[in-house]
């Protein structure tokens, strides 16, 4: 594991206006106005969205803007990318990669079919995580890295390694580390993936909970994004999925993307759903398409 210490490191406003739908006897629903996002543009869709991509897209750009780290007004423009990969000092996220590797090796020793299951029938995991989430024909559902781990453990070893648990996250961060640096390529040419993307997109704009917030209330232009929300400044959703599972300093543990969704729902005072829930999977597909062409960036810390 490389642990070099390196130099650290507005836009087309979405048409404003809450869209409320009342059709016939349909219940009244409020959605945050939808921003225009073209899934084919992948991470480049941030241009014309938050327009922060040029500040964090590459190592060189992060270095050039390292002066913003710790600046309460400018830091959000770096999209926290200065904390990905080996850009920050040793933290437990790095150690989790080794732990996950040891766990996966142990499980594969019990039955080599476990590794073959993770590797889509092959022998190596290298680069595979960059293609997730994807549609699995045999299972007839969308699979994420975390659901793949859960499913392989169950079917091959009859062991529960549930999504949203520390063992699953450790194996996941190891699995994904074998794609670190590989550009994410969620297959938007797959009809099932796009159906999931569209459902996830709808969820992103749906106002929920006691606060009547949508994900978009904080993460599209014209929303709270780029403004202060107490101590935080919400950032762009583009490339965000790339660094999960991440080591979360507030909880001192690895956190998967779907666990992060759950944490957001708590802050939005919205009823919880669990990692692996189809709604979260759709949201993960939507979010990961917004990371297409950006490299898998684990381990990371937030």
């Amino acid at each position: 594991m490389r642990l070099k210490i390196r130099t650290l490191v507005f836009a087309a406003i979405a048409s404003l206006g809450t869209t409320a739908t009342v059709a016939g006897d349909e219940p009244y629903h409020e959605n945050y106005p939808q921003a225009h996002i073209d899934p084919a543009r992948g991470v480049n869709g941030d241009i014309g969205f938050s327009d922060t991509l040029p500040f964090w897209r590459t190592e060189a750009e992060l270095e050039r803007n390292a002066k913003w780290v710790g600046d309460p007004n400018e830091q959000w423009k770096l999209n926290w990318k200065f904390m990905d990969l080996d850009r920050v000092d040793l933290h437990p996220g790095h150690l989790a990669v080794d732990e996950g590797e040891a766990m996966a090796a142990k499980l594969a020793k019990r039955n080599p079919a476990f590794l073959a299951c993770l590797a889509d029938g092959g022998k190596k995991l290298d680069g595979l995580a960059a293609g997730y989430p994807k549609y699995d024909k045999a299972l007839d559902r969308i699979v994420t890295v975390e659901s793949r781990i859960e499913q392989c453990a169950k079917t091959v070893l009859n062991e529960e390694i549930r999504q949203g648990t520390p063992p699953n996250n450790k194996i996941s961060v190891y699995f994904k580390s074998l794609s670190a640096g590989t550009p994410i390529k969620v297959d938007i040419g797959d009809g099932k993936v796009m159906e999931s993307y569209r459902r996830g997109e709808q969820l992103f704009y749906k106002k929920t909970g006691q606060l009547n917030f949508a994900c978009a209330s904080c993460h599209v232009p014209g929303s709270i994004m780029g403004h202060k929300l107490r101590g935080e400044t919400p950032t762009t959703p583009f490339a965000d999925a790339a660094h999960y599972p991440t080591y979360r300093t507030p909880i001192g543990a690895l956190e998967s993307l779907q666990e992060r969704f759950a944490r957001c729902l708590g802050q939005m005072r919205t009823a919880q759903i669990k990692p692996g829930d189809p709604a979260f999977t759709d949201l993960e597909v939507f979010m990961t398409v917004l990371s297409n062409d950006y490299p898998v960036s684990v381990p990371s810390a937030r």
């Binding site: 219940p27 009244y28 629903h29 929920t208 729902l265 005072r269 009823a271 759903i273």
Partner: peptide, 19 residues
């Protein structure tokens, strides 16, 4: 418990709740 307000679930009742 925030189940009296709309949520993201496809299966729970709150997923169908009106704003």
């Amino acid at each position: 418990d925030y189940s009296a307000y709309p949520c993201l679930s496809y299966t729970l009742d709150c997923g169908k709740l009106a704003t």
